[in-house]
Design a protein around this nucleic acid. Structure first.
Lengths: 336, 336
DNA sequence: CTCTCCAGTCGAAGCGCTTCGACTGTCTGG
DNA sequence: CCAGACAGTCGAAGCGCTTCGACTGGAGAG
């Protein structure tokens, strides 16, 4: 391993000078800088992360806590995680992957050991058990998701309330009067995950506003569960002409069922999904959808966190505005 | 931040004693140990990661390089990543998430800075550009996937050749004579990703052995691309009664197409998939499949790496044996 | 022409931990 | 009863880096 001292000797300067060349915290003459940089290159020097962390009290690592749940749509998590990792790199940070397994203890461990400079928490629940710890440890953190009490916290999320409203207004605008919502798995609601409830909130208030009749049913996803849910919905509200789906695992089953029942999309029934763009585009019918901006959320989270670590910016709640893209699955309500 | 020295003072012992209590590298009397442990608890002490890394030359971090490709099935990657993270924790390691973005440089950076003690590379290509670097840096590493030249490397992977053979033999045993393979996206083959070619290899040699006629076609996945691929296959080989699918994104489209054409599964056509268990079970027809043991691969990779880091075990190639589960999508070939 | 200031450099003091060698007593075997 | 072994503890020397204060020489101000 090449050390700073060896670089210094090779370049004929002192160790501190090399350090200042690296950090840019003091001015260095052009000639010295070049000499040092050349030595660094020739010797293939890489600063030792541990030593740096010890001396500077900064690890240049961001911890990312990913939930372990099986009822969340995995590709979205992955997309966020990847976006976090690549954005972090552009700011000189690496990402430590923590799984939910360890639970709140992970917060303590990371904060206590100085392993990471800050953390990003995904899939935050309304009343998340990690939050008290976070507040008391004064660990710089950004949440992806929105807890009930956001005081002293920085959060990034899609504006799910506006998302729900957008879906209903789109369908209302097309003349639909009876709309069913195929929601997330029951467990998601029981956990009080903010986003599901907020979407529902938006759906409901927009329905009230537009005089639409709304029926919401949670759904596990998969063919069998979706078939049961859809059958119940159509049984209860045979006049349903619009579906809002907020469960990626129910999208394709729903389309298959409708096809099977001879209901044409979008002529007889309109479908609007809340899902990643890729799912909407690759479905058997190109879906009108509000996309889940996974990448953007990851990027924002990192940028908020880096701002905090740099002493810029404070607590803030960023709600990304939803965008509805009209594709082939929605159209005017059928005339009776 | 509480330091070792403070714990030592609080417990009335020297710093080194506390260190030995923590590491267990020297014997400590029961009473002293208890006193120290009590102080640690009372003060809420957490060893500082940087200092530890500097002094011991060990970071207790494993780097995981995840590819950034869009043509790989994401949930599998995620499952592996999660399995790696949780298994690593049980061995006292944390996981650093590196995306493919940085490319081979990441290997240099991590090896050079001592950020991680070892690394796990996912989605290794037959002739991966990271391998020379790995060899020369003598960085302890484990690959998930199998490159062309495995000398000096430790690899973990599913035995894809046996997987291919298993699929063909299953269908042959059921009396099928004409089998089509819907493969991964063309890009996957162009990249010379080992697993796709090895599966094909197994399929072909088993076909030769059993006298089966085999037609292989790469396929992007998604409805449109799959429709084109299937149409071409049935055009070229109208007598096809068996399908092997090795592309998660083509599974559901294929089933939908067959249904649409009035071909019943498994009465008219049998389908065998190579995919994660969840996909097989949640498909519209419960699929006979060889499962991708993502968790097991992640776990194995970590355990191999930890063994290396502990100076146990050497270079080794572990090929996990495939297991075929018969479900509702395969049955006897129809009699003509 | 002196005084101040600043860019540019260096030396040294840690950061919090691990680990080696050394020391002290206690126990065992001969 | 003593030599040797060994469990148990301590002090001190780093690990490789950052950063503070101090020093130097030359430029600009008065």
């Amino acid at each position: 391993m090449v050390t700073l001292a060896e670089v210094a000797q090779h370049a004929g300067v002192s160790a501190s000078t090399v350090s200042y060349v690296l950090s840019g915290k003091r001015s260095i003459s052009a000639t010295t800088r070049q000499r040092v940089e050349r030595s660094i290159r020739e010797l293939g020097y890489h600063p030792n992360a541990g030593a740096r962390a010890l001396a500077s009290n900064r690890s240049n690592i961001i911890a990312l806590m990913v939930p372990l749940r099986t009822d969340m749509y995995v590709p979205v998590m992955m997309e966020i995680a990847i976006a976090v990792a690549t954005t972090a790199r552009t700011h000189g940070y690496d990402v430590l992957l923590l799984t939910g397994e360890e639970g709140p203890d992970a917060v303590r461990r990371v904060a206590g050991s100085g392993l990471a400079d800050g953390m990003i928490l995904m899939d935050v629940e309304l009343d998340d058990e990690r939050l008290p710890l976070l507040r008391e440890s004064a660990q710089p953190a950004v949440l992806i998701g929105l807890p009930a009490d956001t005081t002293g916290l920085t959060c990034v999320d899609l504006d799910f309330k506006a998302t729900g409203a957008l879906c209903v207004k789109h369908l209302a605008g097309l003349g639909h009067r009876d709309v069913a919502v195929i929601g997330e798995a029951p467990a998601v609601y029981e956990r009080h995950t903010g986003f599901a409830e907020r979407t529902l909130d938006g759906l409901r208030s927009a329905a009230r506003e537009t005089g639409l009749r709304l029926l919401h049913r949670p759904c596990e996803g998969g063919y069998d569960a979706t078939a049961v849910t859809v059958a119940r919905i159509l049984d209860e509200r045979p006049d349903t002409t619009g579906f809002v789906v907020q469960n990626e695992a129910a999208v394709e089953p729903l389309l298959a069922l409708l096809r099977q029942q001879g209901r044409a999309v979008p002529e007889d029934v309109s479908v609007v999904a809340v899902c990643p763009e890729q799912v909407a585009v690759q479905a058997s019918v190109r879906l009108t959808s509000v996309s889940l901006p996974a990448q953007e959320m990851g990027r924002h989270a990192v940028e908020q966190l880096v701002a905090k670590l740099d002493g810029r910016g404070g607590d803030e709640v960023v709600l990304l505005p939803p965008a509805l893209t009209v594709r082939a699955s929605s159209g005017p309500a059928p005339v009776r």
